[in-house]
Design a binder for these strands. Structure first.
Lengths: 234, 234
DNA sequence: TGTATTTTATTTGTCGACAAGATTTCGACA
DNA sequence: TGTCGAAATCTTGTCGACAAATAAAATACA
């Protein structure tokens, strides 16, 4: 499956090699183009990107730092698995970050943040209208990340980003379910959250963040258990 | 200042090079042996560890991922600065992680965790007795990290670890102040926290975690403002 | 035929070298 | 003497090659 066509790898700039590989591999992992457990071959990637192994190794080290790949010493590195057994720890962290970041946004947002947030919300609403499940997942994550950035706490924002990424991978497994009535409700809830933030209502913002998160968690958990039943049935 | 003595770099094993450099650089950064802003020269390190630049670069990439060094493209990488202006975001995150991890420990701890926690608490008490400020900082962090691990949420644990590391660097600036009456109070508070966890009292555990954290934050803030006044006075 | 052991092959970790950017030094000119 | 520009130096990013470690294949033996 190697791409033999000499796809104009236009003289990339010095120093951009690792970042390019990192970005692309990250997307392929989160979109499940590279499913969990896939082995990652350095020389194959080196040929694919027409560069040496050095920048590819740098990208892999970075991905390993974020837990997206696991590196066994002296042996192949592979895409990390999703830990379904301890999923509740993920949900705990996700809900808390939804609450905290929404509350902080209400406290610290500036006018310029609102524009960004509303743009993402419009994109999400458009994705819902278009019934594009993948776009829904992406724009929803972007919307909440924009809120988190308005909260101006890089420690929370970076953890939240990591959790949303991981969620992108989980939701990607079950995105079919997004084609029901729920997304429209999400659009309304987003509007409520924006209103609460604009009003600088800390308590309400946190509460809406929590309810929104728990709504999503319930949805995913329902899908997970349904899927378990299917597994057993097979 | 290069170490010319051929210090028996005993044939290190394959694959251990990068980890060795990473561990040592990390400690030197957190202990302020390498103060914020220090430039990091790759070839100097390569000579010092008697290895090629490749494993050193890998260590630097990892440190950059944790925010301990900043890498300017095509220019030198340097030890990251401590952001005193946005210190409150750090405190917000720290307090929340104290609360959450202590509460989760009360919920999920097992008997085997208590042994570890009590060992660290004993080490902290010993450091307080010995008036060893550096040991206090290290053992205190180890104690709270052990509690976090008993809470069994890797997302919270990793953020908390990062925050405690960063704190190690901040406290290292002002460790003299630890030579007052406060540390003994910390020992007592630690004992109370352990008791609350053992009793599986979620509410009390979270409350103690919060108070303990806010106590520490107040202490550090007092030091910071005092230091600012000194800066102005000079 | 099945298992243990040696041989081969694959893949990673490390190395030394070279070239692109950036910084500093030096010199020309006003 | 001060400022601008060119040459030299230094540091990083990338490369191809080699050796150690592991996995796979082939062979010997029961």
């Amino acid at each position: 499956m190697t791409n033999t066509s000499k796809t104009s790898v236009t003289e990339r700039k010095r120093g951009s090699g690792a970042k390019m590989v990192y970005d692309l591999l990250r997307d392929e992992i989160l979109d499940l183009v590279l499913p969990p457990g896939s082995p990652i071959d350095e020389v194959l990637l080196a040929e694919r990107f027409e560069m040496s192994r050095t920048p590819i190794r740098e990208a892999l080290v970075r991905l390993a730092g974020e837990g997206l790949v696991d590196t066994l010493p002296n042996r192949s590195t592979m895409v990390s698995n999703i830990d379904f057994l301890n999923m509740h720890t993920y949900f705990d962290a996700l809900v808390l970050m939804y609450r905290v970041t929404t509350q902080l946004a209400a406290r610290y947002y500036r006018e310029s943040d609102l524009e960004v947030i509303r743009t993402h919300q419009a994109a999400f609403a458009a994705a819902v209208e278009a019934q594009d499940a993948l776009a829904m997942i992406a724009t929803n994550a972007a919307f909440h990340l924009a809120i988190a950035e308005a909260g101006r706490n890089p420690y929370f924002t970076s953890l939240f980003k990591r959790l949303l990424d991981e969620g992108r991978r989980i939701l990607r497994l079950y995105y079919q379910s997004y084609e029901d009535r729920l997304p429209r409700r999400f659009v309304e809830e987003h509007d409520e959250m924006i209103a609460a933030i604009v009003a600088r209502d800390l308590v309400l913002s946190e509460q809406l963040g929590r309810e929104h998160a728990e709504q999503i968690v319930r949805q995913v958990q329902k899908l997970l258990t349904r899927n378990e039943r299917l597994d057993i049935a097979l």
